[in-house]
């Protein structure tokens, strides 16, 4: 199982690459023979995938490969046409409200409410959980400070830069202390330097806080920076490769994996 790149049709030993230990933690997200159709268009085709608690998984694929559809099914915004999607043992579309406080989303754009200050934006998830105002403020301030926004808590979104706004949205997701973080290309709208710095920070926070994170991206570099597991998707959302990355993978091996992924995506 180690040292292998698994593709949608079975296990293929490619090289002497080193990977992290096999998954032993509880399954957090399970796709079981999931198909999603929009009319005649098949967006996801008979997909089976387990994501385990504590994993940071990058779902990598070209535009239109069905990764956003997968994302919407995990978040409960969309139901599968066939098969089953289970998140924490429940079906997200059917039991939408069960996930209150258990799941938080970082979107592609910051989606800050313009009529709320930074700190009030961070508090929104806590308000839905019915947390007392003083505790809400403390938790929101803690995350804003953690993400380097001390002194900007009373600023309205229009007064913040793109990077600062995305930091507020990350604070908003972390503040609810949700077990599962879903991220839909959250840094793609930022410049390369800010994006790189934020994703490193984000990965560190996810690991330090023991969260499970699913990170959608079309950037191979981003997937490498973030994911301790990279699931490469081909059209229509079939698994092309399922890679477990570890720090011990040498830079040459990483380069080889990068080329392999690139070839898969280009095919």
């Amino acid at each position: 199982m180690d040292a292998a790149i698994r593709n949608g049709h079975g296990m293929t030993k490619l090289d002497d690459l080193q990977f992290v230990a096999p998954d032993t933690a509880e399954v957090e997200i399970a796709f079981r023979n999931v198909t999603k159709r929009f009319g005649n268009l098949v967006a996801v085709d008979n997909l089976s995938l387990d994501i385990h608690r504590g994993q940071m998984v990058a779902l990598l694929g070209k535009t239109g490969c069905g990764k956003s559809t997968m994302f919407n099914m995990i978040s409960g915004l969309m139901a599968p046409s066939e098969g089953e999607v289970e998140v924490m043992g429940q079906q997200p579309f059917r039991n939408f409200n069960w996930y209150r406080g258990k799941m938080a989303i970082v979107f592609q754009t910051d989606r800050l409410l313009p009529w709320r200050t930074a700190v009030k934006n961070v508090e929104i998830g806590l308000e839905t959980l019915g947390i007392a105002p003083a505790e809400r403020r403390d938790r929101a301030m803690h995350w804003l400070e953690t993400l380097g926004l001390k002194g900007h808590e009373n600023d309205y979104p229009h007064a913040l830069s793109g990077g600062m706004r995305q930091r507020v949205s990350i604070s908003r997701a972390f503040a609810t202390d949700a077990e599962l973080l879903l991220c839909d290309e959250p840094f793609s709208a930022l410049d390369e330097i800010t994006s790189k710095r934020l994703r490193t920070e984000f990965a560190r926070l996810v690991r330090e806080n023991g969260k499970t994170a699913v990170f959608i991206t079309h950037s191979i570099d981003e997937a490498f920076d973030i994911g301790d597991r990279i699931v490469v998707l081909k059209r229509p959302a079939e698994i092309a490769h399922d890679l477990r990355m570890s720090d011990s993978v040498s830079s040459e091996d990483r380069e080889h994996i990068r080329r392999t992924i690139h070839a898969s995506l280009a095919a």
Partner: peptide
Amino acid sequence: KDLSEMVMSFRPSRRKYFSAM
């Protein structure tokens, strides 16, 4: 719609959705 979806992602009650969004 994006802001509305963001607020909905926290699964608010109807009352909270109305007052916050």
